[in-house]
Computed example of a mutant assay.
Amino acid sequence: MFAELLTVENLGNLLMLCFLQAVLGFDNLLYISIESQRAPVAHQRSVRFWGIIIAVVLRVVLLFAMVNLIDALAEPFYVFDWEGVITGGVNFATVVFIFGGIFIIYTAVKEIAHMLTIDHLETDVQHKSGKSATQVVMLIVMMNLIFSFDSVLSAIAITDVFPVLALAILLSGAAMLLLADGVTAFLEKNRMYEVLGLFILLIVGVVLLGEAGQAAAHATHDKTMALHFFGYEVIPMSKTTFYFSVIVLFAVEILQSGYSRKLNAERHAHH
Protein backbone atom coordinates (compact mmCIF):
# COMPACT_ATOMS: atom_id res chain seq x y z
CA MET A 1 0.00 0.00 0.00
CA PHE A 2 2.76 2.42 1.02
CA ALA A 3 4.81 1.50 -2.08
CA GLU A 4 1.80 2.27 -4.29
CA LEU A 5 1.77 5.84 -2.96
CA LEU A 6 5.45 6.41 -3.85
CA THR A 7 4.84 7.06 -7.51
CA VAL A 8 6.28 9.88 -9.61
CA GLU A 9 2.75 11.22 -10.15
CA ASN A 10 1.95 11.32 -6.41
CA LEU A 11 5.30 12.93 -5.55
CA GLY A 12 4.74 15.54 -8.27
CA ASN A 13 1.24 16.21 -6.95
CA LEU A 14 2.62 16.51 -3.40
CA LEU A 15 5.13 19.18 -4.49
CA MET A 16 2.39 21.05 -6.36
CA LEU A 17 0.07 20.84 -3.34
CA CYS A 18 2.77 22.12 -0.97
CA PHE A 19 3.34 25.10 -3.27
CA LEU A 20 -0.43 25.69 -3.43
CA GLN A 21 -0.75 25.52 0.37
CA ALA A 22 2.15 27.98 0.74
CA VAL A 23 0.59 30.49 -1.68
CA LEU A 24 -2.94 30.21 -0.29
CA GLY A 25 -1.69 30.08 3.31
CA PHE A 26 -0.15 33.58 3.27
CA ASP A 27 -3.37 35.37 4.30
CA ASN A 28 -4.08 32.63 6.86
CA LEU A 29 -0.69 33.12 8.53
CA LEU A 30 -1.20 36.89 8.52
CA TYR A 31 -4.56 36.51 10.28
CA ILE A 32 -3.07 34.16 12.90
CA SER A 33 -0.21 36.58 13.62
CA ILE A 34 -2.52 39.59 14.01
CA GLU A 35 -5.30 37.83 15.93
CA SER A 36 -2.91 36.11 18.38
CA GLN A 37 -1.85 39.56 19.61
CA ARG A 38 -5.37 40.05 21.01
CA ALA A 39 -4.70 37.35 23.62
CA PRO A 40 -2.95 38.04 26.97
CA VAL A 41 0.76 38.58 26.27
CA ALA A 42 1.85 35.57 28.38
CA HIS A 43 -0.34 33.20 26.33
CA GLN A 44 0.21 34.51 22.81
CA ARG A 45 2.79 31.92 21.77
CA SER A 46 0.74 28.98 23.08
CA VAL A 47 -2.36 30.47 21.40
CA ARG A 48 -0.60 30.39 18.03
CA PHE A 49 0.70 26.85 18.65
CA TRP A 50 -2.60 25.30 19.73
CA GLY A 51 -4.63 27.34 17.25
CA ILE A 52 -2.56 25.97 14.36
CA ILE A 53 -2.41 22.38 15.73
CA ILE A 54 -6.18 22.13 16.28
CA ALA A 55 -6.88 23.83 12.94
CA VAL A 56 -4.60 21.42 11.03
CA VAL A 57 -6.27 18.39 12.63
CA LEU A 58 -9.72 19.77 11.77
CA ARG A 59 -8.50 20.59 8.25
CA VAL A 60 -7.61 16.93 7.70
CA VAL A 61 -11.08 15.97 9.00
CA LEU A 62 -12.61 18.57 6.64
CA LEU A 63 -10.56 17.14 3.78
CA PHE A 64 -11.76 13.58 4.54
CA ALA A 65 -15.39 14.78 4.67
CA MET A 66 -15.09 16.72 1.41
CA VAL A 67 -13.40 13.87 -0.46
CA ASN A 68 -16.33 11.64 0.47
CA LEU A 69 -19.13 14.22 0.27
CA ILE A 70 -17.88 16.42 -2.58
CA ASP A 71 -20.92 15.73 -4.77
CA ALA A 72 -23.43 16.31 -1.96
CA LEU A 73 -21.72 19.57 -0.89
CA ALA A 74 -21.53 20.77 -4.49
CA GLU A 75 -25.27 20.52 -5.11
CA PRO A 76 -27.05 23.90 -4.63
CA PHE A 77 -29.66 23.73 -1.87
CA TYR A 78 -31.36 26.94 -3.02
CA VAL A 79 -31.59 28.71 -6.37
CA PHE A 80 -32.52 32.40 -6.61
CA ASP A 81 -34.72 33.21 -9.59
CA TRP A 82 -35.62 36.86 -9.06
CA GLU A 83 -34.83 38.06 -12.58
CA GLY A 84 -33.16 41.47 -12.69
CA VAL A 85 -32.45 41.45 -8.93
CA ILE A 86 -30.74 38.21 -7.87
CA THR A 87 -30.28 34.90 -9.67
CA GLY A 88 -28.02 31.89 -9.19
CA GLY A 89 -27.45 28.92 -6.89
CA VAL A 90 -26.31 28.72 -3.28
CA ASN A 91 -24.44 25.68 -1.95
CA PHE A 92 -22.43 24.92 1.18
CA ALA A 93 -19.28 26.62 -0.17
CA THR A 94 -21.27 29.80 -0.96
CA VAL A 95 -22.37 30.08 2.67
CA VAL A 96 -18.85 29.46 3.99
CA PHE A 97 -17.30 32.11 1.72
CA ILE A 98 -19.99 34.72 2.51
CA PHE A 99 -19.71 34.14 6.26
CA GLY A 100 -15.89 34.15 6.18
CA GLY A 101 -15.69 37.22 3.92
CA ILE A 102 -18.06 39.31 6.05
CA PHE A 103 -16.32 38.28 9.29
CA ILE A 104 -12.83 39.10 7.98
CA ILE A 105 -13.97 42.49 6.60
CA TYR A 106 -15.65 43.27 9.94
CA THR A 107 -12.50 42.29 11.90
CA ALA A 108 -10.18 44.34 9.66
CA VAL A 109 -12.41 47.45 9.68
CA LYS A 110 -12.88 47.24 13.47
CA GLU A 111 -9.12 47.01 14.10
CA ILE A 112 -8.30 49.80 11.61
CA ALA A 113 -10.92 52.03 13.28
CA HIS A 114 -9.42 51.22 16.69
CA MET A 115 -5.93 52.19 15.51
CA LEU A 116 -7.28 55.55 14.34
CA THR A 117 -8.82 56.31 17.74
CA ILE A 118 -6.11 55.26 20.25
CA ASP A 119 -4.30 58.02 22.12
CA HIS A 120 -1.51 55.99 23.70
CA LEU A 121 0.28 52.76 22.85
CA GLU A 122 -0.44 51.55 26.39
CA THR A 123 -4.15 51.75 25.62
CA ASP A 124 -3.56 49.70 22.50
CA VAL A 125 -1.71 46.99 24.44
CA GLN A 126 -4.55 46.76 26.96
CA HIS A 127 -7.04 46.51 24.12
CA LYS A 128 -5.09 43.70 22.53
CA SER A 129 -5.22 41.74 25.76
CA GLY A 130 -9.00 42.06 25.94
CA LYS A 131 -9.77 38.52 24.73
CA SER A 132 -9.07 35.31 26.59
CA ALA A 133 -6.61 32.80 25.14
CA THR A 134 -9.46 30.32 24.55
CA GLN A 135 -11.49 32.89 22.59
CA VAL A 136 -8.53 33.71 20.34
CA VAL A 137 -7.74 30.01 19.74
CA MET A 138 -11.37 29.41 18.74
CA LEU A 139 -11.27 32.38 16.33
CA ILE A 140 -8.00 31.20 14.79
CA VAL A 141 -9.36 27.66 14.34
CA MET A 142 -12.64 28.92 12.84
CA MET A 143 -10.98 31.30 10.38
CA ASN A 144 -8.33 28.69 9.51
CA LEU A 145 -11.11 26.34 8.43
CA ILE A 146 -12.70 29.08 6.30
CA PHE A 147 -9.36 29.82 4.65
CA SER A 148 -8.84 26.06 4.27
CA PHE A 149 -12.08 25.56 2.39
CA ASP A 150 -10.76 27.29 -0.72
CA SER A 151 -7.38 25.53 -0.57
CA VAL A 152 -8.99 22.11 0.02
CA LEU A 153 -11.29 22.58 -3.00
CA SER A 154 -8.26 23.56 -5.11
CA ALA A 155 -6.25 20.59 -3.76
CA ILE A 156 -8.98 18.06 -4.60
CA ALA A 157 -8.93 19.37 -8.17
CA ILE A 158 -5.24 18.32 -8.38
CA THR A 159 -5.60 14.81 -6.89
CA ASP A 160 -8.10 12.70 -4.97
CA VAL A 161 -5.47 10.54 -3.22
CA PHE A 162 -6.26 11.22 0.45
CA PRO A 163 -2.82 10.38 1.97
CA VAL A 164 -1.09 12.79 -0.45
CA LEU A 165 -3.62 15.55 0.33
CA ALA A 166 -3.33 14.97 4.09
CA LEU A 167 0.49 15.02 3.98
CA ALA A 168 0.45 18.37 2.12
CA ILE A 169 -1.84 19.81 4.82
CA LEU A 170 0.40 18.50 7.63
CA LEU A 171 3.50 19.98 5.97
CA SER A 172 1.77 23.36 5.53
CA GLY A 173 0.77 23.24 9.21
CA ALA A 174 4.40 22.59 10.21
CA ALA A 175 5.50 25.55 8.08
CA MET A 176 2.95 27.80 9.79
CA LEU A 177 4.20 26.67 13.22
CA LEU A 178 7.76 27.59 12.19
CA LEU A 179 6.83 30.99 10.73
CA ALA A 180 4.03 32.24 13.02
CA ASP A 181 6.27 33.49 15.86
CA GLY A 182 8.63 35.25 13.46
CA VAL A 183 5.82 37.00 11.57
CA THR A 184 4.19 38.12 14.84
CA ALA A 185 7.51 39.44 16.20
CA PHE A 186 8.06 41.38 12.97
CA LEU A 187 4.58 42.96 13.18
CA GLU A 188 5.15 43.92 16.82
CA LYS A 189 8.44 45.69 15.99
CA ASN A 190 7.09 47.30 12.82
CA ARG A 191 3.62 48.51 13.75
CA MET A 192 3.02 50.20 10.38
CA TYR A 193 3.09 46.76 8.73
CA GLU A 194 0.28 45.62 11.03
CA VAL A 195 -1.92 48.33 9.49
CA LEU A 196 -0.81 47.08 6.07
CA GLY A 197 -1.69 43.53 7.13
CA LEU A 198 -5.19 44.63 8.15
CA PHE A 199 -5.75 46.24 4.74
CA ILE A 200 -4.58 42.99 3.10
CA LEU A 201 -7.09 41.07 5.24
CA LEU A 202 -9.75 43.54 4.05
CA ILE A 203 -8.91 42.59 0.45
CA VAL A 204 -9.00 38.89 1.45
CA GLY A 205 -12.56 39.39 2.73
CA VAL A 206 -13.57 40.91 -0.61
CA VAL A 207 -11.87 37.99 -2.43
CA LEU A 208 -13.89 35.47 -0.39
CA LEU A 209 -17.16 37.29 -1.17
CA GLY A 210 -16.22 37.13 -4.84
CA GLU A 211 -15.53 33.38 -4.52
CA ALA A 212 -19.03 32.97 -3.08
CA GLY A 213 -20.54 34.20 -6.34
CA GLN A 214 -18.97 31.38 -8.36
CA ALA A 215 -18.90 28.57 -5.77
CA ALA A 216 -22.04 26.77 -6.96
CA ALA A 217 -21.16 27.28 -10.64
CA HIS A 218 -17.65 25.83 -10.23
CA ALA A 219 -18.87 22.88 -8.16
CA THR A 220 -21.64 21.89 -10.58
CA HIS A 221 -19.88 23.03 -13.79
CA ASP A 222 -23.07 24.94 -14.59
CA LYS A 223 -22.49 28.62 -15.43
CA THR A 224 -26.16 29.44 -14.83
CA MET A 225 -25.59 28.75 -11.11
CA ALA A 226 -23.29 31.80 -10.79
CA LEU A 227 -24.79 34.54 -8.61
CA HIS A 228 -25.99 37.70 -10.39
CA PHE A 229 -27.04 40.91 -8.65
CA PHE A 230 -29.12 43.37 -10.70
CA GLY A 231 -27.98 41.62 -13.85
CA TYR A 232 -24.25 41.73 -13.00
CA GLU A 233 -22.33 38.51 -12.41
CA VAL A 234 -20.32 38.24 -9.19
CA ILE A 235 -16.79 37.53 -10.45
CA PRO A 236 -14.00 36.70 -7.96
CA MET A 237 -10.69 38.55 -7.98
CA SER A 238 -7.98 36.40 -9.54
CA LYS A 239 -5.13 35.23 -7.30
CA THR A 240 -2.71 37.07 -9.62
CA THR A 241 -4.54 40.35 -9.07
CA PHE A 242 -4.64 39.75 -5.31
CA TYR A 243 -0.90 39.11 -4.98
CA PHE A 244 -0.11 42.02 -7.31
CA SER A 245 -2.19 44.26 -5.00
CA VAL A 246 -0.26 42.94 -1.98
CA ILE A 247 3.08 43.64 -3.68
CA VAL A 248 1.96 47.18 -4.57
CA LEU A 249 0.84 47.82 -0.96
CA PHE A 250 4.20 46.64 0.39
CA ALA A 251 6.10 48.72 -2.20
CA VAL A 252 4.14 51.86 -1.28
CA GLU A 253 4.72 51.24 2.45
CA ILE A 254 8.48 50.70 1.99
CA LEU A 255 8.85 53.82 -0.19
CA GLN A 256 6.76 55.91 2.21
CA SER A 257 8.78 54.71 5.23
CA GLY A 258 12.05 55.54 3.48
CA TYR A 259 10.77 58.98 2.46
CA SER A 260 9.58 59.70 6.02
CA ARG A 261 12.99 58.75 7.45
CA LYS A 262 14.70 61.01 4.91
CA LEU A 263 12.44 63.97 5.82
CA ASN A 264 13.02 63.43 9.55
CA ALA A 265 16.79 63.29 9.01
CA GLU A 266 16.70 66.58 7.05
CA ARG A 267 14.59 68.27 9.76
CA HIS A 268 17.06 67.16 12.46
CA ALA A 269 19.97 68.38 10.34
CA HIS A 270 18.38 71.86 9.99
CA HIS A 271 17.75 72.06 13.77
Score class of each variant (00 low, 15 high):
residue 155 A to P: 08
residue 88 G to K: 05
residue 217 A to F: 04
residue 80 F to K: 05
residue 88 G to T: 05
residue 244 F to W: 10
residue 140 I to Q: 03
residue 202 L to G: 15
residue 245 S to V: 11
residue 256 Q to M: 13
residue 189 K to A: 12
residue 135 Q to K: 10
residue 15 L to F: 10
residue 54 I to N: 04
residue 91 N to K: 09
residue 134 T to Q: 10
residue 114 H to W: 09
residue 175 A to R: 05
residue 40 P to V: 04
residue 65 A to Y: 11
residue 83 E to Q: 14
residue 134 T to H: 08
residue 66 M to L: 14
residue 187 L to D: 06
residue 239 K to Y: 08
residue 110 K to G: 08
residue 268 H to A: 13
residue 44 Q to A: 09
residue 192 M to W: 09
residue 161 V to R: 00
residue 158 I to C: 00
residue 230 F to C: 01
residue 144 N to P: 04
residue 46 S to H: 11
residue 4 E to G: 00
residue 10 N to S: 03
residue 26 F to L: 14
residue 32 I to Q: 01
residue 154 S to L: 11
residue 133 A to F: 05
residue 2 F to T: 00
residue 260 S to T: 12
residue 80 F to I: 03
residue 253 E to C: 08
residue 47 V to S: 07
residue 21 Q to W: 14
residue 267 R to C: 02
residue 135 Q to F: 06
residue 167 L to S: 02
residue 145 L to V: 03
residue 259 Y to M: 15
residue 47 V to N: 07
residue 173 G to T: 01
residue 39 A to T: 04
residue 191 R to H: 11
residue 13 N to A: 12
residue 38 R to W: 01
residue 76 P to I: 02
residue 271 H to T: 05
residue 114 H to P: 01
residue 200 I to C: 03
residue 184 T to L: 02
residue 198 L to C: 02
residue 79 V to A: 11
residue 236 P to T: 07
residue 240 T to V: 15
residue 264 N to F: 04
residue 52 I to T: 07
residue 157 A to I: 00
residue 83 E to P: 01
residue 47 V to I: 09
residue 60 V to Q: 11
residue 122 E to K: 10
residue 37 Q to T: 15
residue 194 E to C: 07
residue 144 N to V: 03
residue 117 T to Q: 13
residue 107 T to Q: 14
residue 214 Q to C: 07
residue 68 N to Y: 10
residue 10 N to Q: 02
residue 201 L to E: 09
residue 14 L to G: 00
residue 247 I to D: 05
residue 54 I to A: 12
residue 230 F to M: 12
residue 226 A to I: 00
